[in-house]
């Protein structure tokens, strides 16, 4: 069984600063860490590896220093890793990113499962997992909060968390999953894993290596244009109802009728 975990280096939320004038993150001098949700994707992949036996490969798109993320994943028990890195990838939106990652994953031996974190904490789009599934032609289950192996290891029973509760979904491999932090508790690295990771040669794949078409990667492949970013305002009206309990109840019923709720 071959499992891929897609991980991303993001600015460390504990050390990141905000430029209030431009409304953007100050990334200079900020430590890079693995996206917090991706640790849970790694743990899910390693859990499957422990139970079914599998080779787990971590894939990341990013600058050469994204090697650090791959090494950290390997210290946790991931077998191999690849950094997909090329100046031509710069400025990629989720469309170009999923194309790039799908091209890289296509170079690996037949992949049975791809694990992603729910979303990355810098972009917060949650689009890469589902986008990747479309490109790979795999079914996709998002917001996974529970996972059991079924059918003698041929498939998974998943708990897909929703705002109202959860769905139970059964799926056969191959599959793309995006996972939540409630799915598991990430393990600590092992000494042997750290030593192996330190010595490992991490392959770097360029646009050419993965056979990417130039107009589908980087800025050229990214139709998304960000005009501005802002935190949406949710304004709720608040009113205190006065009077004794009966008066308050009547006033409340009146308001609810006016609002068309009852």
């Amino acid at each position: 069984m071959n499992i891929v975990v897609c991980i991303k280096q993001v600015p460390d939320a504990e050390s990141v600063k905000w430029d209030h004038k431009t409304g953007t993150l100050i990334r200079d001098g900020v430590k890079s860490v693995i996206n917090p949700f991706d640790y849970h994707a790694i743990e899910a992949a390693l859990t499957l590896k422990d139970k079914l036996g599998a080779k787990v490969t971590a894939v990341t798109m990013g600058p050469p220093q994204a090697q650090d993320a791959i090494r950290e994943a390997m210290s946790l028990g991931v077998d191999e890793g690849v950094v997909v890195s090329d100046r031509a990838f710069a400025g990629a939106d989720t469309l170009a990113t999923t194309y790039t990652l799908a091209q890289a994953i296509g170079k690996l031996d037949s992949v049975d499962a791809v694990f992603c974190g729910k979303q990355a904490i810098d972009g917060d789009t949650a689009q890469v997992g589902p986008g990747l599934a479309v490109r790979l032609g795999f079914p996709c289950v998002t917001y996974v909060g529970g996972m059991d192996i079924i059918n003698d290891g041929k498939g998974l029973r998943l708990k897909r968390m929703t705002e109202q509760g959860y769905d139970i979904v059964e799926v056969e491999f191959p599959v793309v999953l995006t996972v939540l932090s409630c799915l598991n508790t990430p393990r600590v690295p092992s000494l042997k894993g750290k030593m192996r990771a330190k010595k490992a040669q991490i392959p770097m794949w360029s646009a050419e290596d993965i056979g990417a078409e130039p107009d589908k990667i980087g800025l050229a492949g990214s139709p998304t244009k960000v005009h501005s970013t802002y935190i949406p305002k949710f304004e709720a009206k608040r009113e205190f109802l006065e009077g004794d309990p009966e008066e308050q109840a009547e006033a409340l019923v009146q308001r609810l009728k006016e609002a068309g709720i009852i």
């Binding site: 600590v188 690295p189 000494l191 750290k194 030593m195 330190k198």
Partner: peptide, 18 residues
């Protein structure tokens, strides 16, 4: 040594996180 520093880092991480 590099290996000894790894032991320190690993044990420190466990102390901090776990």
């Amino acid at each position: 040594t590099e290996e000894q520093q790894m032991i320190v880092d690993l044990a420190r991480q466990i102390a901090r996180e776990k």
